[in-house]
Design a protein around this nucleic acid. Structure first.
Length: 212
DNA sequence: ATACTGATGGCCT
DNA sequence: GGCCATCAGTATA
């Protein structure tokens, strides 16, 4: 497996987000490997993107988004969950790609233990779920995924059409279709539970019906 | 199937 | 003090 290099990340964020669908996310912790294929991402930029943490400029939290591309941006949200991003663009131009869902490949049993749920699908079909399944927290914020042995991305094939939609769980910037996901993949998150996410006029329902 | 809610803490006005 | 780039549980149909 070939690891994704600096050049991959150092581009216009929505392009990186689209190309990350199909890539393999690998996490090594205490000699245990967990990995999965990325099936859903979202792009966040800076001053042109009101939904982005970096919209209002540099703060302690968003510092990594302004730094070199290819680093992990991990943040804590809703008092409980961590979310994992890969930084993009160039120094001084903030950007990050949120990894929203993966399809498990390696370490399924470990993921089950860390998550405390049984169903394969529920293991990693959301941004907060996959970080818990992979043991990702603030200790990895700023990690350079181009060289790290703990956290990195490898080339992979989406093996199917990639669709776009409005981003999940944001109340502003809803005119920008910067969510990218694999059509009909069962591990794509179902789009959040908050009503306001679908209240904007013209919002379409998620295209993939899921059962079981 | 959709709708709503509680948990819980950091970040920013 | 209000708002979250969330999740799991419960209620309702």
């Amino acid at each position: 497996m070939r690891r994704l290099g600096r050049r991959f990340y150092s581009r216009y964020t929505p392009d990186v987000a689209r190309d990350m669908v199909g890539a393999i996310l690998v996490r090594e912790l205490d000699g245990v490997v967990t990995s999965g294929r990325i099936v859903e991402t979202e792009a966040y930029r800076g001053a042109d993107d009101p939904a982005s943490h970096a919209y209002r400029g540099r703060t302690r939290r968003t510092e990594v988004m302004f730094g070199e591309a290819g680093h992990a941006y991990v943040y804590f949200t809703y008092g409980f969950h961590y979310c994992l991003n890969a930084t993009t663009e160039t120094r001084g131009s903030p950007g990050a790609v949120l990894i929203r869902a993966i399809e498990p490949i390696e370490g399924v049993e470990v993921m089950r233990e860390r998550r405390g749920v049984e169903g394969l699908r529920q293991l990693t079909d959301g941004p907060g779920k996959l970080t818990k399944a992979m043991g990702i927290d603030l200790a990895l914020n700023g990690e350079d995924m181009v060289v790290s042995r703990k956290l990195y991305l490898c080339e992979g094939d989406p093996a199917g059409p990639v669709e776009t939609s409005v981003r999940v769980g944001v109340s502003v910037g809803r005119e920008t279709p910067w969510r990218f996901f694999l059509v009909d993949n069962p591990f794509v998150s179902r789009g959040g539970t908050h009503n306001y996410a679908e209240q904007a006029r013209g919002a379409k329902k998620g295209s993939s019906a899921r059962s079981q």
